[in-house]
Every structure is written in C-alpha cells, then in structure tokens.
Amino acid sequence: MKLFEKRKALATVFVLLILILATPSTLFAATDYQKILKSIDNLRRFEEGDFSSVLTMISQDPEKGTDKKVVRQFRRDKDNKFLMLIEEPEVQKGQGYLRVGDNLWFYDPESRKFSHTSLKENFSDTDAKNSDFGRSSLSEDYIVERGSEGKLGKFDVYILELKATNNEVTYPYMKVWVTKKNYLVLKVEEYSLTKRLLRTSYFPKYAKVGSTFTPTVMLFIDNLVKGKKTQITVKDISIEKLPDYVFTKSYVERVNR
C-alpha cells in the first residue's frame, strides 16, 4: 500500500514536472515575438532625456513633382511629446506640429491659429504620417498575430505580422521585418482594415546614440499612387536636455514673432 502511494506521489510529481516544463515552452513561443516588439520600442525610445534633430524630407509625386522640406524635430518620449517645426521651404517656415500626450495641434504662423489634427494624417504634404515622428509604441498598440523567420537582403530577420489593439493607430495591420541580431526595424508594410497595402516604409540606416537606435534614413512609398514617395534624412542629432517650454503652444508662437 505504502509502495503504491509512493508511486502515486512520484507519478503526480512527474506529471506536474511535465506540465511545468511543457507550459512555459508553449507560452514562450507565443510571447517571444511580443517581447521582440517590446524590445523594438525600448531600443528606439529616448526615455531618459530629450532628442532633437533636423529632418530633410524629399517628396516625389508623379503629379506635383519634387518637393523639399527641412524640419526641426524635438522629442520628449517619456512624456509622449514632440514638436516639429518647418524651416524650409520659406513659405511654410514656422508651421508647426505640437504633440502633447493625446493631443496634436497644427500651427499656421500666417493666421496665428492652432488647429487640432490627427496622428493618422500625412505630415504636411509628404508620405510620412504624423505618427511617424513620436516615440515608438508598437508593443502598446499592436499584438503579433503571426511570426516567422526569413531574410531581407543580407540580413536574417524576424517577420512579424501585427494587428492593432485600438482604433487610434494609423494602420490597423502591419508587417514588420526586424533584424534578429539587434531588433532593428528594416522594413514595414502598412495595411488597411481590408488588408490592402497602403504604404511601404524602409529604414536602411540607423544611428546609435547612447544606448538608443534611431533611423537616420527613411523611405516611405505610397502604394496607392504609383511613383509617390518620400525620403527622410536625419541630421544634427542631439540628446541635450531641452527646456520644458519647447513643448508648448506659446513657444511655437514666440519663435514665429
């Protein structure tokens, strides 16, 4: 009888052991890709301090020709704030996009008026979206529906198929190619709710600033209008602490005086 009970106890332990070993492995497979998403965000965020840079945006449009914009970018990722100030062309100088949390305002210096706008809108008349310039929040806004491994050019990559968890995001579905080695996003395909490909984004160059990686060359291709695309080159990167007033409406008005 004792022997039987001992065996029973052993069997229970054995079964439990198997369960313990088996469960995390399946869980691990599911959470793995979500973890990668989190890593992407962490790598791209300047959580400690502020970030500023100068962006040159060249847009090509089959109808409207080529357009150039130079934009000053200020970011404070920890408070979810940014300010984009257009420096060129001269006629748009001083137009600004100020994000504070969930609010995004556009400022027109000519009429001295602010107007609410959306992160889903295009930045000025480029192929970049306003949401492209804030802190990275993939892991907050998306879940990985499917993950696989593959190659992109010479790089070994994970290919993550993402589905949005809320309606606030610009694209409901995305496919992201991210390097296995250091979780750098190389390419993103962005889809509509009906899974129509709307835009393809490429990030072929990164700068390592401290422990953070930030793309220095970006290419956005409009998949609805053939030949419409925008290249963004990032220069004059700084992680100096910025005064709080930079992320206020009054600063935007003041620099335009």
């Binding site: 150039k68 050019g153 010479k154 190389l186 490429y202 390592k208 600033v209 004059d236």
Partner: peptide
C-alpha cells in the same frame, strides 16, 4: 537627400553590410 528615390528594392537597400553608425550627438 534623394539617394533612395530611384527604383530601389530590398536587395539594393539591404544587400550591403552594416547599417548602424555611431553618432556623437551635437552638444
């Protein structure tokens, strides 16, 4: 500024080696 505006594909963009450069931020 316009280096990628021609016809570029995955190979042209990611066929080379390193894509990360260390940057000393302006202070």
């Amino acid at each position: 500024e316009a280096s990628l505006l021609g016809n570029v594909g995955d190979e042209e963009l990611f066929g080379g080696g390193g894509i990360v450069e260390n940057v000393n931020p302006d202070e």
